[in-house]
Each structure stands twice: as C-alpha cells, then as structure tokens.
Design a binder for these strands. Structure first.
Lengths: 326, 326
DNA sequence: TTGTAGGCGTTATCAA
DNA sequence: TTGATAACGCCTACAA
C-alpha cells in the first residue's frame, strides 16, 4: 500500500504538505502543489479512508437495513434510499434481512461505523430497537413500522387496513379473505388490525391465511376450496395480491367478477396495465424516502439531536381493474 | 466515543488486555476476563472499525456496483450478491448507477476501501475499467459484460442475441422489431450484434428502436404505426418486453397472434402466469452470482491472484405464451 | 498472565 | 509557505 509518506518522499516534501495538497490546496505554493500532484499520479496514491475516519470520527457511511430485494417494494425503497444517500455524498452499506433468521441482520447494528441508520421495510424484532438505542447512532424508520420506538416516516399501516375495509364494503362482499405475510411483521399486523376493527361493524365473515410468499400456496388453496370461499381478497402486500391474481387466473376465476382482489402498498408493478391491481398506497406526490433521508441527515448534522416524533402518512385508494369493471 | 482505554480504566487493567479479551479471550485469565467483559457491557463499548482496519489492512467490505434497483433484474442480482457476501462475513457497500450521469458512479472506485469489487449489471464506460485496473483491488464482472477487460461471469450476450434470432425464425416473421435499451450499454450492444448477425442469412426485415425505458414509448409507437409493422418483437431485456406487452395490450393487439414478444434475461417476473413472457436466459440450475462470488473471494484470499479468464454461460430459450399458443 | 511501547496512515496544531 | 509532532483507537511483539 502506498501512503502519503511515500508521496512525500518522491516529491521531496514533508508528509504534512501532502496532506495539505489533499485538503487545503489553496494553502500550498503552486510549484510544490504541482510536484506533489505529480507524485500522487505517478504512485497512484489513494488516501486511506480508515486512517481518515479514525481522526475525523466520520465514516461517511449510512447503513441501510431492508428486506429481500426480490420483493419489488423493497427494491424500490432501497433504490431511492441509496440514490438519496449517494447524492448527499454518503456511501451506503446495505444489510439485507434473511427471512430464515430475521434477527441475525441486526447484529450488524453493533458493529457498524455508520453515521446514520435507515431502517427500511423489514421485519423488526425487539433486539433491533434495543441495539439501535444503545448504538448511539441516529436512526430512522421508513416504511418498516418501527412504531413508537423511534422516528418513523411511512404509511400509516393501521389506517391502510381500515381504508381497505371501508373500500371493499362498497363491493358488498359475503366473505372476505385476508391474505397476509409473515405474522411477525409488525407492519402487516397493524394493517390487519386496522382492517378487522373496521370490518367488525359490517358483520361480514373474514377468513385469514398467513405465511411467507413461498409457503402460501397450500393454505390459500385450502381457503379457496371451502364452501364459503371469499369473493373479495385483501392482500397484506401487493406481492400477495399478485400471487392471488396468478392463482385465480390459473384456477379459472374471473377477476373481479368471481373474486375481487385488493393489494396494499401500491407498488409500481400493481399499476401496470397487464396487472392493474387495485391497491392502497401513499399519495402519488409523496416521496417518503426523501423525507426520511432529510430528517436523518439533519439528525446526523445536529449530532443526533433530531426532531423525534413520527410522520405517518394517510394512504389513499388506487382503484383499478381487480376490483372494478369499467 | 468510548474507547478501549476507557474500558481498561474501568476494569483496572491495561488497554492491551482489553484488546486481548476481544481477540484472544483464551489468553486471559477467567477473573480478568469477567471484569473486562463487565466493563465493556457497562460502557456499551464498541470497537472502532476504522482503527482496526488501519492495522489489519482489511476492511471486510465488498463494493457492489449495479444499475437501478427498480429494474427487477438488477434487484434480483443485488439481492443475491448481498446475501452471498453477508453469508461470507463481508459487509456490502452498494453503489447504484445514475442513468443521467452513468460515469459518476465509478468515482467511488477511487475512494473505496473495499477488499473486492463486484461489477454487476450496469453500463460500463471506459473509465470504469481504467479505475478498476489502477485500484489494485480484485474485481469481477458479473452480468455486466465487462468483456475482455477482466474476469467475467455471466450470460454470453452475443450468443443470447443469436439464439433469439434462431428461435424466432421458427415463427416465420415478416418484420422483426428490436426493442433495445440504452445504446451505450455494452451488454445490449452485444445482444443486438449477435442478433443481427444470425438474422442476416434469413433476409427478414429488421426495425430497431432504442432508448431508456422512460423514453421508449414514443419511438415504439412510431414503429407500430408503420405500414410494415413488426409481427415479432425481440426485447433487449425483459423489462422492455414487459413494456411491449403492456403497450400491445393497450392498443388492442393479440399476443402472440398479432405480434409475438420475446424477452432476454428470463427475469423472475417473466415466468409469472399472468405475464408468461417468453425469454432467453441462463439455465435454471446455474447460480451465476454465487459462482462469481466464489471467484472473487478466492482472489481476495490469494491476494489478488485469481484465475483470470471469463466464464460466459450459454443461454437457453424459455418458451412461454407470448410466442406460442398452446 | 499481564503491561509497556511502537506503529498503522491521517489530520491538525504549532513553530520555524 | 512549510516541517515537526502529537493525537485518533487499536493490535502486537516484547518485556516483566
């Protein structure tokens, strides 16, 4: 590894001068500047980030935690988050949750040298919040429903469930099927809670199936095999909604005539013409991630002292062809 | 920030002992071990990664470069890459290419302290390869078609184009439309090259449209407005294929009766029942990313001396409903 | 088994 | 305008 000392030797100056060339070029004479720059070029010198951050106490790193990127929602989120961070000059360290051992990803919180932590859409366990608190690093939840535990920016999941219930009431269903995800996912719990609470009044029958996307086929098949099968399906996320669409297509159902389907999340995919999945989501003009990022970087700059408090956004209905015939 | 010196003071030992507890606990007496551990707990001490890697000359970081994650192919790739790296104990630093200034992402190559660089699916410019070479960091291309310039693991893009041509010949088209992406994307160029070369013999008319996914609608509309419009469309990536499907649906075409569509990439989405996009892709049993990662970590461990040479894989056809009626 | 001390590559504060 | 020099937090001989 070539260090600034090597550069100094070659240029015939002191190491301090090399450092100056790098950080305060205006404070060094033109001729020396050239000499040093030449030496840097020649040796292909690159300052050591570790040494730098050792002294500056700044890593320039943001840690991003999120769920698997093969879920389009998560990918879309991660993309926005990374682009935002890059644009602000941060480097992003990404940590993806393994569904088989969801806790293990949080160990990274203990080791990371990041200046800020962005908790994206993933399954939050208690340890996570605990680790976050003790880490002393500014953090923010965005779309993960960290809930009361910290700063949150995201869709109000409870309201989303409620809105789903209100909307499908207009469809006058006899039996409603809830197609959920991992039951330990707080976001989905909240959605379901809001949903049942709002449904309670109507007295409509609710059947529920939960599980990972990979393991949902069997229980869902069982749900559809019942005599009183649902004529409206509310999916905890758009991915499950798409799964349902796929399934219904395969089994010969007409959507929405036989069974209507409503997703939650309003992912980009759901809006595509060939899918046209009705969904509950954030208003179009809202960029949650950017909002969260602004808050996070403010916290970093203010030395961890940010405006605590959550900023949950009320969702709206995107009515498409899986709930309505035109 | 609490340092190992603080821990040492509290535990009444030397800083060296604290270090030992962290790295060689077996070399320290049980009672002192406990004392130190207690102090660590109490102060919530976390070793400083910068200081560590300054000495060890290891960052434990892999830098991942890829295209926008709202493209499912890229997201799927990034996911696999990150999961692989995490499982091997690396932290992943992710760099996403901004389509508006594709070059700028490569600046990160100059600054990164990563031990290895994985170049995923993105648009490679000359500077990238140059930077990579001078960085001295082991790197590998995976699905980005870095071509001759380094180690590559990925689909043989030229062969993919050729295979597309051969396959659609069986559809006996009169006019074939090529729906391409960014013309400066090497991968797509290679695909197109292989395609035209193989088509040349048949003498079938080829029309071509390129551009970003956002800007493709107008030129594509123009293409379809021509008197001799294509009856088969080959898309440079599945995303464009899906776009075409969406468009055709909207404009009242029957697929594949009026127009057949073939994608390249065999993304997960393309296989979904509701889409069922025929596509050219890697054999199912092949995990490119894992392969690439194994090579990369081998290079890192062997101090940059890996087995140079590319490992391009021959693609196969996945025939689905957009090219064939059952 | 433990402590002392030197150094990793920078930055930053002084003198010169 | 430049050059010594002391940190930054940690690891690791070497000595005790």
């Amino acid at each position: 590894m070539v260090s600034s000392v090597d550069v100094a030797k070659l240029a015939g100056v002191s190491q301090a001068t090399v450092s100056r060339v790098l950080n305060n070029p205006e404070k060094v004479n033109a001729p020396t500047l050239e000499k040093v720059k030449a030496a840097i070029q020649q040796l292909n010198y690159r300052p050591n980030a570790a040494a730098r951050s050792l002294i500056s106490r700044k890593s320039g790193i943001i840690a991003l935690f999120c769920g698997q990127l093969d879920e389009p929602d998560n990918a879309e989120f991660a993309n926005k988050a990374v682009m935002n961070a890059q644009q602000k000059g941060y480097t992003v360290e990404i940590h993806i949750q393994n569904p088989d051992k969801p806790e293990s990803v949080f160990d990274a919180i203990l080791d990371t040298q990041a200046e800020g932590i962005m908790m994206g859409p993933l399954i939050i366990k208690g340890t996570a919040v605990e680790y976050l608190k003790t880490s002393g690093i500014p953090y923010i939840f965005c779309g993960s429903g960290g809930g009361q535990e910290g700063i949150t920016v995201g869709m109000d999941n409870h309201a989303a469930g409620k809105l789903a219930a209100e909307y499908i009431s207009s469809l006058e269903p006899e039996t409603v099927g809830w197609l959920g995800g991992d039951p330990s996912d707080l976001r989905l719990q909240e959605r379901y809670q809001g949903f049942v609470e709002a449904m309670k009044e109507s007295g409509v029958r609710i059947v529920k199936v939960t599980g990972d996307l990979e393991d949902i086929e069997l229980p869902f098949t069982a749900m559809m095999a019942q005599k009183q099968r649902p004529d409206v399906i509310v999916a905890a996320t758009d991915s499950f909604g798409i799964f349902a669409l796929d399934f219904l297509y395969d089994y010969g159902y007409a959507v929405p005539e036989d069974v209507a389907v409503l997703g939650i999340g309003n992912s980009r995919q759901s809006a595509m013409n060939y899918l046209s999945l009705s969904s509950i989501g954030l208003p179009d003009d809202m960029d949650m991630v950017a909002e969260a990022f602004d808050r996070l970087s403010a916290m970093i700059e203010n030395n961890g002292q940010g405006s605590r408090g959550s900023a949950d956004v009320n969702p709206v209905v995107y009515e498409r062809r899986t709930t309505k015939t035109y």
